[in-house]
């Protein structure tokens, strides 16, 4: 990573660290969704950008994470967040193996449709198993213990803008470091080669199905962890969380932010969450505006908003350098 990039990241991190002290409580609360979706999209984009597979059913893994947190906290009375995360990683991995074994045999639209189908199957399962999952009413998620500490005596908003905020930020940082290392490892480069040219990757001894399956499993685990982080914020899990439109939202966030940049999807979550909050407070049909926005982004800047910002930054830097040379 370039020096300017590191400085920029550190500035954002510094801002996020002081944000709960300077920002309005509600906006700080909204930031929690950004953390959760960012972790989820790290996984989604491993599959989309680095492996070249577009999943239209990734909300399934958000559901696995969310429902795991719901079961553990409200049904089994195990409020430890770390337990929820570990069980989610395990369950998401198992689910990803089962689905992935079928899905990774296909690519392009067939892969997208298969993941969509499995996502909707899971949605139906949640709806129909009323005795287990609460059906369309869903399940409540209790406030979790963080690092073994009970914060139930705290006011809920204070919990979210304090301990839970920093916990989520910590998980996002750890997940980002882990994903950065994955995509820059030999494994990550093999995924890129498969995306670029699967036939030629095979000629070099890369078993493409095995690599695609591994990417699918890792992707599912990251998205599952995103689901665990999201669950306490919503306080409730229902089948709507795994509905295909939620998967579509994840695709939207990734495209708007910029899928070809590691941090692009994270920017997409900020745009999505902020716009949804602002637009839905004015008009009911906020998805209509989102649709138009997505069309505009895809046509005008396929690299997403991050590409626009990067180009703008380069332009400003060039102008400054040109000015310095002239003087």
């Amino acid at each position: 990573m370039k020096k300017t990039g590191i400085v920029f990241l550190l500035l954002i991190l510094a801002f996020l660290l002081v944000w709960p002290f300077i920002g309005p409580e509600y906006q700080v609360y909204l930031t929690l969704s950004f953390f959760a979706y960012s972790v989820a999209l790290l996984g989604f984009n491993l599959l989309f950008n680095y492996t070249g597979l577009l999943s239209f059913g990734h909300a399934l893994f958000i559901g696995v994470g969310g429902y795991t947190a719901a079961f553990l906290t409200s049904r089994f009375h195990i409020p430890y967040m770390e337990v929820s995360i570990l069980v989610t990683i395990l369950l998401s991995g198992v689910v990803a193996i089962l689905i992935g074994l079928i899905c990774v045999r296909y690519i392009k639209i067939y892969f997208a449709m298969l993941t969509l189908a499995f996502g909707m199957l899971f949605h139906s399962f949640l709806m129909k198993t009323y005795h287990l999952t609460g059906g369309d009413e869903g399940m409540s998620v209790e406030q979790p213990y963080l690092l073994g500490m009970d914060f139930s005596s705290m006011d809920q908003m204070a919990f979210f803008s304090g301990p839970y905020y920093y916990y989520s930020l910590g998980v996002l940082i750890l997940a980002s470091i882990a994903m950065w290392r994955i995509v820059h490892s030999p494994f990550g480069l093999c995924l890129t080669s498969i995306r670029d040219n699967p036939d030629k990757a095979e000629y070099l001894g890369i078993g493409i199905r095995k690599y695609r399956l591994l990417a699918f499993i890792i992707s599912g685990c990251f998205t599952g962890v995103g689901g665990v982080l999201l669950a306490p914020i919503t306080g409730h899990m229902d089948p709507g969380m795994v509905f295909w439109t939620h998967s579509g939202d994840m695709v939207f966030m990734t495209l708007v932010g910029g899928f070809s940049n590691f941090f692009g999807p994270m920017l997409g979550t900020v745009i999505f969450i902020t716009l949804r909050d602002v637009i839905s407070s004015y008009i009911e049909y906020w998805r209509l505006i989102f649709g138009a926005l997505l069309a505009a982004i895809v046509i005008l800047s396929p690299g997403g908003v991050i590409e626009v910002l990067t180009n703008l930054f380069t332009l400003i830097r060039r102008k400054i350098m040109a000015g310095e040379n002239a003087s």
Binding site: P186, L189, T192, S193, R195, D196, K200, L204, I206
Partner: peptide, 13 residues
Amino acid sequence: FPDLTTHENIEIS
């Protein structure tokens, strides 16, 4: 592989 560097293209084998 267009997105990999020359070195990475060789290294991958």
